[in-house]
Design a protein around this nucleic acid. Sequence first.
DNA 1: TTGTACGCGTTATCAA
DNA 2: TTGATAACGCGTACAA
Lengths: 346, 346
Amino acid sequence: MRAKVKDVANKSGVSMATVSRVLNGNTRVNEKSKQRVLAAAKELDYLPNQAARSLVLKKSNILGIIVPNLENSFNSKLLATIEEEADREGYKIIICCIQENLEKEIKYVNLFRQMYIDGLIILNEKINSKSRKVLNSCEFPIVQASVLIKGLKNSISINVDNRKASCELVNYLIKNGHRDIAMITGNLVDQTSGQFRLDGYLQALKENDISVNENLIKSGNFTFDSGYKATKDILSKKEIPTAIFAACDEMAMGAASAALDLGYNVPNDISIVGFDNIESSRMYRPAITTIGQSTKIIGNLALMAILQSKNNAKTSIEFNNRQYPIIDNKIEIPYIFIERNSVKKF
Amino acid sequence: MRAKVKDVANKSGVSMATVSRVLNGNTRVNEKSKQRVLAAAKELDYLPNQAARSLVLKKSNILGIIVPNLENSFNSKLLATIEEEADREGYKIIICCIQENLEKEIKYVNLFRQMYIDGLIILNEKINSKSRKVLNSCEFPIVQASVLIKGLKNSISINVDNRKASCELVNYLIKNGHRDIAMITGNLVDQTSGQFRLDGYLQALKENDISVNENLIKSGNFTFDSGYKATKDILSKKEIPTAIFAACDEMAMGAASAALDLGYNVPNDISIVGFDNIESSRMYRPAITTIGQSTKIIGNLALMAILQSKNNAKTSIEFNNRQYPIIDNKIEIPYIFIERNSVKKF
DNA sequence: TTGTACGCGTTATCAA
DNA sequence: TTGATAACGCGTACAA
């Protein structure tokens, strides 16, 4: 049986109230009793009961995280960063993976609501009316990390400008002499990584008077596998593009592998660019040209946003001596273009 | 303010006890009151308070998971499977990623202890005296999924025979004419994926009267990056091996990329084998020959082990009409050898 | 079949 | 500076 406050009180010869005061250190207490309590607590291996604690405090020092899946290594990296930041601020994080299943999201968000978590960070972009309702009835602040869900209450979104970044990437291809450029999009119900990246692609074509060829646009689901399949599809048609823009690095590597299997050289026959700058995009051969977003910044801002959400009416958040304004419940963060070896220059 | 049992009771005109009875459905209650309670609960969007609930029940229907990092995709796959199995059994899972940091493990295990979780699944193999003490003082059952920590109380371990599997893999290389075989080990403090796989390698050499060349044994940390570096190291020496056995697929792919960068053809100049059969080992070029372990079986047995741990003295666990005996607190599961295109046959 | 009242372990209030 | 005690929200003996 685990020791309770009462046991510590008995052992140290003071009241439960004093024990609580010592352990939570808010008010002043006699140094002697303090030492006795501390000693007793240690000896009894006392551990506060989280359930009882949050029942009265309505606070848990726990942050909940909803992640759509664990296959995507950008998400993994982001989770790691968030954990670090949270740890530094004295918060623990709990990760719930919903396997792209909104029913599970609802289940876990309700679990979080029952647990008195202090904030929620969501990396999942899909939503339906039911999950929206549950999210909107949360009593804690919600941060959308690298995703955008419109019309969510009590919530802000942190993102790079995915349209602009994608446009820049495709413009880079065009500048290097490519005109027949295919795209493997993500799931278009995902705004930022799906629709916006497609938007950027279309805009770049438009800016350069290149007409859109629907046959060159395929959709995947952000996995290596889907990039592979989409590329086999693209390369089995008559019109072979000279370049492929995949909406994430996993799909870009899948695309490259498919091209290789079909006997194409990358980048000499087919150039490929990705998005996210995941670890292995650097290590793949050829190394993938891509867009990087700083998980450090996202993670830190996400945490700051939650911590500062009590003092509402915040109009900006500071990180590393830089101010990030909050406009329309959104924070825009910078991205970087990373040139590597997966694009041929004509 | 969220609705409480009392609110539901008031609205439906019965007592709190009756509401509780309806919502937990253990004892019989008048059908009419039942309907009224259900309607009221729904209308008020009633959600039980987890903290209060587990405070009295000393049970949460939550399973805790400790994972060393989220970079390794075998772990990701395993997590996904565990989630599925848990969901089917009515359990929610909470994942805590400790970033290879035992202090964090202690912190999270203590959090779990405070939360009345019903069981813990650990995917982390490292341990020290402090974390061992905390794990040993847990009041819930612990399952070691695909890891082995010796002398842990109240705990069983589920594993393939890593020694045997590694030995088989290296024997396959030898049978195909390789004799100068390098190995990139994992971190050797990890028993199963570190030491045991090295043991298997050494045993295979011994069985075939091949003397051990220490220069051909490098250690990595299960990442693509470390496999890459180790291989550059190996291939910069005088004695170039014809094959490399990497202790996991990530490192195998890192090894292959390094070899390619140095101008070697894989598998014609250098053959490479991995371990774990992660998704991308199939999609990499060349596709990696490897050992597969079924996350399905591991996840399911882990769950069964926790659920059945109350009725102790269990000597075996059933899954898919097959009995898995528990011997010395260990369950051995089968592995499969997966031949692909990363090995040259002389 | 139903309701009253107590206990779960903790913190906060109020007197002392 | 301390101690008794009332919450927090729920489940369940026990009594009715």
